[in-house]
Simulated scan of single mutants.
Amino acid sequence: MQNRSHAVMAQRAEAADSPDDFPTPPWATRGFMEHVINDCGPFSKMSALEPACGAGHMAKVLKEYFGEVRASDAYAYGYGAVRDYLDVPYEANAVDWVITNPPFRLAEEFVQRSLMVARLGVAVLVRTVFIESSGRYRSLFENIPPTKFAQYVERVPMVRGRLDKKASTATGYAWLVWEKEKVGFPRLMWVPPCRKQLERDQDYS
Score class of each variant (00 low, 15 high):
2 Q>L: 12
3 N>M: 08
4 R>S: 15
6 H>R: 15
7 A>L: 09
7 A>F: 05
8 V>H: 14
9 M>W: 10
9 M>R: 14
10 A>P: 01
11 Q>L: 15
18 S>I: 11
18 S>V: 11
19 P>K: 11
23 P>V: 07
24 T>N: 08
25 P>E: 05
26 P>R: 04
26 P>E: 05
27 W>N: 01
28 A>W: 12
29 T>K: 02
30 R>F: 02
31 G>M: 06
33 M>G: 02
33 M>V: 03
39 D>F: 07
39 D>P: 09
39 D>Y: 07
40 C>P: 00
42 P>E: 12
42 P>C: 06
47 S>E: 07
48 A>E: 07
49 L>P: 13
50 E>G: 09
51 P>E: 13
54 G>A: 02
54 G>Q: 03
55 A>P: 00
57 H>S: 11
59 A>H: 07
62 L>T: 12
66 F>Q: 03
68 E>Y: 06
70 R>A: 10
75 Y>F: 15
75 Y>W: 15
76 A>W: 01
77 Y>S: 06
79 Y>D: 07
81 A>C: 04
84 D>L: 02
88 V>K: 09
90 Y>A: 14
94 A>I: 05
96 D>M: 09
101 N>G: 08
102 P>T: 10
102 P>H: 04
102 P>R: 03
103 P>A: 09
110 F>L: 11
114 S>R: 04
117 V>S: 03
117 V>P: 00
120 L>S: 12
120 L>P: 00
122 V>G: 09
123 A>R: 04
126 V>E: 12
127 R>Y: 03
128 T>G: 07
129 V>W: 00
132 E>N: 14
133 S>R: 13
136 R>Y: 00
138 R>K: 12
138 R>M: 11
138 R>H: 13
140 L>M: 13
141 F>T: 01
143 N>K: 15
143 N>M: 09
143 N>W: 01
144 I>W: 14
146 P>S: 05
149 F>D: 04
149 F>H: 10
150 A>R: 06
150 A>Y: 06
152 Y>R: 04
154 E>F: 09
158 M>P: 00
160 R>W: 02
165 K>I: 10
165 K>V: 11
166 K>M: 04
167 A>H: 05
169 T>E: 14
170 A>T: 12
172 G>C: 10
174 A>K: 05
178 W>P: 13
179 E>F: 11
182 K>C: 10
184 G>K: 04
189 M>R: 06
189 M>Q: 14
193 P>V: 02
194 C>S: 13
195 R>S: 02
195 R>W: 01
197 Q>G: 00
198 L>F: 02
198 L>G: 10
199 E>Q: 14
200 R>L: 03
202 Q>V: 01
203 D>C: 00
